[in-house]
Design a protein around this nucleic acid. Structure first.
Length: 274
DNA sequence: CACTATGTTGGTTG
DNA sequence: TCAACCAACATAGT
């Protein structure tokens, strides 16, 4: 259930194995994952013969650069990639298989089948759905304090909802929003347009710091996330609030509370977050 | 067995 | 414009 640090870790591990590999054939066992082209048969046809040149990331999306196309992949809750040998047994929830000319395969596995793939003409991927709707990646210069503060000023939603909104900033999900707000000392139910400049700055900075640190740790594994080599992340050891309900706050000792904000489980320290 | 939760997001409704 | 709810789907926990 990857957020930015998990997707970035997958990108880095995967690129070591698939760059320069040429797609010889493709199997699609759950066509609903393929969102464009509409027909998964066309998806298979146009990608055969294409060589992977690079893997990029924007927010929580992986972008596979091919010669004529870009494959835009979102893992949603449970999507995983692995690189296997043709003879390796196929797992139960493997839905898309890209077989390379060298006998290896890039396999997409997704227990809940929520993940999506779009194939778009090379160079046009940023100009259309799904990427066109995304706000800046938090590691981009575009995610400046001026930009962020303006966004906060003109919405009366609660701050947690704003941080989860991928059109504002692309890459934060439930774990890292809760962690960011804890470190910034801001309660998730605060109205975005009522935050002080100092609070807004703390949120912006802590978001970047938290994501950077999580990337260094290879992401967070709560129950199922693994990178492109099947390895777990380590950032769960550094969580302050996410999944820590009824345990003492590492800062003040008071029990972490779990509540619902915008339908999402939300973890907060009532004394440290105002 | 029933019911809830889950790292996401898109659509519908009021 | 936005919150609330549901949908997509499978599994694990209570």
């Amino acid at each position: 259930m990857p957020e930015l640090p998990e997707v970035e870790t997958i990108r880095k591990t995967l690129q070591r194995f698939v760059i320069g590999k040429t797609i010889a054939s493709i199997q699609v066992h759950w066509p609903k994952i393929i969102k464009s082209p509409d027909d998964s048969e066309i998806f298979k046809q146009i990608l055969c013969g294409q060589t992977i040149q690079a893997i990029r990331r924007k927010g929580k999306y992986l972008l596979f650069d091919l010669e004529d196309y870009t494959l835009v992949s979102h893992l949603r809750m449970e999507g995983k990639y692995s690189v296997d040998d043709t003879n390796d047994p196929i797992k139960k929830h493997t839905h898309v298989i890209f077989a390379f000319t060298n006998g290896q395969e890039l396999r997409y596995n997704d227990v809940r089948k929520f993940g999506t793939m779009h194939v778009l003409n090379k160079g046009e991927e940023m100009k259309q759905k799904p990427l066109i709707q995304l706000g800046p990646d938090p590691f981009d210069a575009e995610f400046s304090f001026a930009y962020f503060y303006e966004k906060l000023k003109k919405t009366n939603r609660v701050i947690k909802a704003v941080l989860l909104d991928q059109t504002v900033v692309a890459g934060l999900g439930n774990i890292y929003v809760d962690e960011t707000l804890f470190k910034a000392g801001v309660h998730p139910l605060r109205k975005a347009n009522k935050l002080t400049k100092t609070e807004a700055r703390a949120i912006q900075q802590q978001a970047i710091i938290t994501l950077e640190e999580a990337v260094k740790q290879g992401g967070t594994t709560i129950r199922s996330y693994v990178n492109g080599q099947g390895e777990m992340g380590l950032f769960q050891q550094q969580l302050f609030v996410y999944g820590q309900e009824n345990t003492p706050c590492k800062n003040c000792g008071k029990a972490i509370v779990k509540l619902k904000v915008g339908g999402r489980g939300t973890h907060v320290c009532m004394t440290c977050q105002k």
